[in-house]
Structures are given as structure tokens and as C-alpha cells.
């Protein structure tokens, strides 16, 4: 018996397009050449399709972006997506796969600013590890699990619980494949309740410069999806 759902929004790309992603107001799909965003059947976490975000981030120091953006999202929710990296990348400056952004004025789009970046960096052995960069402090958030390794050529899930409170009840907790990696609690977050969540492929100075991030089964939920959860019947 189907008892219902805590899934507020989801995008599985199973329509072969971005219609699910753009079904909510103020959603955007960005990928200006040489970068690209497309739905492809070359990869899929579930079903037949996934979104492929490609960038060409050479050594010229230019930031390259391919992103799927959602603005005006819930003040308190779980934000989950599955990622696939077809190959490993040597990160020169930075490489991001997700973001939370803020607005200093909730009604003014031009007041958008970065808040938390979900970064991939190389460990000494070259493996990719996940970290969360806090633009307010200019530092990475302390890790619960030291140097959480992100697999290559294997689907992995990044899920975040974000409570954008303006008092000491704010919270950002991040899980990688169900393992808690960051747990930031008891502090104010953005200056107002406005939330932007982006699934991205943003990089500067990557080797090779052509970097691909594949994304599937994105969801905003009121309870954890977790590695075994499902966002569609």
C-alpha cells in the first residue's frame, strides 16, 4: 500500500528533458558553450536518462559553469542528488558539484551571493574528496569524516539537510552515500529565508579541462532519502 510521500519536488529526467527540473517557478538550466547541459541516455542512475553537465575549464583561470538551479526553495528540507563522474580530474583551482546560495534581499535577484560550495579536491593520492566551503568565513567546514572519498565511475549520493534559520537553530548536515561528512549546527545561516540550491559543474583550471558531471534523481524532501531511498514509485 502506498502511504504517501515526503518528496516535495523531484527530477529524474525520465522524460528525456528538463521539464521536471523547470516545473517549478524560478528554476533554470544553464550551460553556455563551450559548456553544456543536456539530458542523455548515456548514463542513468535509475531509468534511462540522466542530466549531463559538461565544462571545459582550462588553465586560463576562467570559471566555467554548467548548472541546474532552483530558487526560492524550502527553508528547511533535505536536498539530494546522485552524481556520476566518468573519470577522475586533477583539480587546479576548484571544482564544484553543488551550491547553496543566499540573497541579502530576498526580493532582489541581484543581491544573490554564494553561501556553501560542495567542492571536490584531490587527496595526495589523487583521489577526489568532498568538502564544504563556507563563503561567509572563507573556510571549509570541519569534516565529521576526514577526507571523504568520492568514487569515480560509480554513482554516489550527496544529500544535505539545510535549515536556513536566522537564529541559532540553523543547520547544514551533509551525507555522502549515507555517511555524515559535515554537521554544522546551532548557528544562523543566510540573512533571510530565501534559499537557492544548485546542482552544478563549476570549475577553474581542471586537468583535463573537459570535465563531466552526470546528475540523476534529484529531490527535495521532508525526510531523508538516503542511499536506499526512492523518489518515484
Amino acid at each position: 500500500m502506498d502511504l504517501g510521500s515526503n518528496v516535495l519536488w523531484s527530477s529524474t529526467f525520465e522524460g528525456g528533458n528538463f521539464d521536471e527540473w523547470t516545473s517549478v517557478p524560478d528554476a533554470r538550466v544553464d550551460g553556455i558553450p563551450p559548456n553544456s547541459t543536456k539530458v542523455s541516455s548515456d548514463y542513468a542512475h535509475h531509468g534511462k536518462y540522466a542530466a549531463v553537465l559538461g565544462i571545459d575549464a582550462g588553465s586560463d583561470g576562467t570559471q566555467q559553469n554548467a548548472s541546474l538551479d532552483l530558487r526560492g526553495q524550502p527553508v528547511e528540507a533535505y536536498y539530494s542528488a546522485w552524481y556520476y563522474l566518468p573519470r577522475t580530474i586533477s583539480v587546479g583551482t576548484f571544482w564544484l558539484i553543488s551550491k547553496f546560495r543566499l540573497r541579502t534581499n530576498a526580493t532582489d535577484p541581484s543581491s544573490s551571493q554564494e553561501l556553501f560550495d560542495f567542492r571536490l579536491s584531490n587527496a595526495r593520492d589523487g583521489s577526489l574528496t568532498l568538502s564544504i566551503y563556507d563563503h561567509r568565513t572563507g573556510k571549509e567546514l570541519p569534516l565529521v569524516t576526514p577526507a571523504p572519498v568520492v568514487p569515480v565511475s560509480v554513482w554516489f549520493q550527496v544529500e544535505a539537510f539545510y535549515r536556513n534559520a536566522q537564529d541559532a537553530t540553523g543547520q547544514l548536515t551533509v551525507w555522502l552515500d549515507g555517511r555524515k561528512v559535515v554537521d554544522l549546527q546551532a548557528q544562523p545561516m543566510a540573512p533571510n529565508p530565501w534559499v537557492e540550491w544548485d546542482v552544478v559543474n563549476v570549475g577553474v583550471n581542471l586537468t583535463p579541462s573537459a570535465a563531466t558531471v552526470v546528475v540523476d534523481d534529484c529531490a527535495i524532501t521532508l525526510s531523508r532519502v538516503g542511499p536506499t531511498g526512492t523518489i518515484s514509485p
Partner: peptide, 12 residues
Amino acid sequence: APERFALPAGDL
């Protein structure tokens, strides 16, 4: 006994 299901928890 009946199986139970909910999203996103899945199989209950």
C-alpha cells in the same frame, strides 16, 4: 501481510 511503501523511504 500487506507491504507498505512511502516516498522517499521506499519499502517500509
